[in-house]
Computed example of a mutant assay.
Amino acid sequence: MDKNARIYIAGHRGLVGSAIKRQLEKQGYTNLVYRTSSELDLRDPSVVNEFFAKEAVDFVFLAAAKVGGIVANNEYPADFIRDNLLIQTNVIDAAYRNNVDKLLFLGSTCIYPKHAPQPMKEEHLLTGTLEPTNEPYAIAKIAGIKMCESYNRQFGTKFISAMPTNLYGEFDNFDLETSHVLPALIRKFHEAKVNNDKQVEIWGTGSPKREFLYSDDLAEACVYLMNIYEGNEFVNIGVGEDISIKEVALKIKSIVGFKGELAFNTDKPDGTPRKLVDVTKLHGLGWKASTSLEEGLEKAYNWYLENYDKESLNV
């Protein structure tokens, strides 16, 4: 990408999009385009096409999506499949119709079968049954991958897809009803510390293992792939290591300074037993994550204290 290229970041205020925006600015890209959801409803094809026609965008980072944890996916499955299908379909199609040079579609590792071999390789896609708790979201993301592949085959576009593992970092969602596990734990431990609670409830058994990637590392990988990668096969983005929910909870407990105990609510679902991605392809392309889990957790907690806590909790 030329430093003066017009680059559209769809979803620039979210966890992923904001990190991509920071990374592009850090690398000296100056011609960035973005809109809030109130300014541009990506679910409306007519306004999306009008936007692309007017803005003459060269590159697109498609990070806009409806996302959430187990609770949100369970309670709003129709919202998750509808909104994500609409957003990605409209943006990908408008990018093609308005001659965008290249587009990067961001999915999620929930696209893989619930019992996929570990670590999960790109070729494991569509080889088994999905995890039921987030199946509608996963199906939407699989459709996005296939849409990019199909447009490349039929129209000669340069649309690439990347599947990041579990993410955390600045501008994360800390709402306990809709957040993912790591920001939820950060908030739970902080509130318990402030309230002098004796214990923090952890959903499930604590035994499932998860891989966590700091959002700024993901953003660096996305810009790297946009610059060097062309191909119809999607690319996993992760760190290549995982950790149990219990272990990561203990790390967060230590960073926050909570002195109480952990209480595992085994009536709550564990979700997929393990989700570790194979990053051999990514490493072969010349990129590796650089932020350790401890360093990333400290950054995420400090951002929470400086931004979210003051506004929402008043403590």
Score class of each variant (00 low, 15 high):
residue 2 D to K: 14
residue 4 N to A: 05
residue 9 I to P: 00
residue 10 A to M: 09
residue 10 A to S: 14
residue 18 S to P: 00
residue 19 A to Q: 09
residue 21 K to W: 06
residue 22 R to K: 15
residue 24 L to H: 13
residue 28 G to H: 08
residue 32 L to Y: 13
residue 32 L to N: 10
residue 32 L to T: 10
residue 33 V to P: 02
residue 37 S to W: 09
residue 39 E to G: 04
residue 39 E to K: 09
residue 43 R to F: 00
residue 43 R to H: 00
residue 47 V to M: 09
residue 49 N to S: 06
residue 56 A to M: 04
residue 59 F to H: 14
residue 62 L to D: 04
residue 62 L to Q: 13
residue 64 A to M: 10
residue 65 A to C: 12
residue 69 G to I: 05
residue 70 I to S: 06
residue 77 P to W: 11
residue 82 R to D: 09
residue 82 R to S: 03
residue 83 D to H: 13
residue 84 N to T: 08
residue 86 L to V: 01
residue 87 I to S: 05
residue 87 I to C: 02
residue 89 T to K: 15
residue 94 A to I: 03
residue 96 Y to S: 02
residue 102 K to F: 05
residue 102 K to L: 06
residue 103 L to M: 10
residue 106 L to D: 10
residue 112 Y to C: 08
residue 116 A to W: 14
residue 117 P to T: 03
residue 123 E to M: 05
residue 124 H to Y: 14
residue 127 T to G: 01
residue 133 T to F: 15
residue 136 P to A: 05
residue 137 Y to I: 02
residue 139 I to K: 14
residue 140 A to P: 10
residue 141 K to Q: 14
residue 143 A to G: 03
residue 144 G to M: 04
residue 152 N to T: 06
residue 154 Q to S: 13
residue 155 F to Q: 05
residue 155 F to A: 13
residue 164 P to I: 02
residue 169 G to T: 12
residue 170 E to G: 00
residue 171 F to K: 15
residue 173 N to I: 05
residue 173 N to S: 09
residue 175 D to L: 08
residue 177 E to M: 05
residue 178 T to Q: 08
residue 183 P to I: 07
residue 183 P to T: 07
residue 185 L to R: 00
residue 194 V to E: 14
residue 195 N to F: 12
residue 196 N to D: 15
residue 202 I to L: 13
residue 208 P to M: 03
residue 211 E to I: 12
residue 214 Y to K: 07
residue 215 S to M: 06
residue 221 A to P: 02
residue 228 I to K: 11
residue 235 V to M: 07
residue 243 I to Y: 03
residue 244 S to W: 11
residue 245 I to M: 12
residue 248 V to R: 06
residue 248 V to E: 04
residue 251 K to G: 01
residue 252 I to Q: 13
residue 254 S to L: 02
residue 255 I to D: 07
residue 256 V to K: 09
residue 258 F to Q: 11
residue 264 F to S: 07
residue 267 D to F: 08
residue 268 K to W: 10
residue 268 K to D: 05
residue 272 T to P: 14
residue 275 K to D: 07
residue 279 V to R: 02
residue 280 T to G: 14
residue 280 T to V: 13
residue 286 G to E: 09
residue 291 T to S: 06
residue 291 T to C: 01
residue 292 S to C: 01
residue 293 L to P: 00
residue 297 L to W: 07
residue 297 L to A: 00
residue 299 K to D: 02
residue 299 K to F: 01
residue 302 N to Q: 15
residue 303 W to Q: 07
residue 305 L to Y: 06
residue 306 E to D: 09
residue 307 N to L: 04
residue 308 Y to V: 08
residue 311 E to Q: 12
residue 312 S to Y: 13
residue 313 L to H: 11
residue 313 L to D: 01
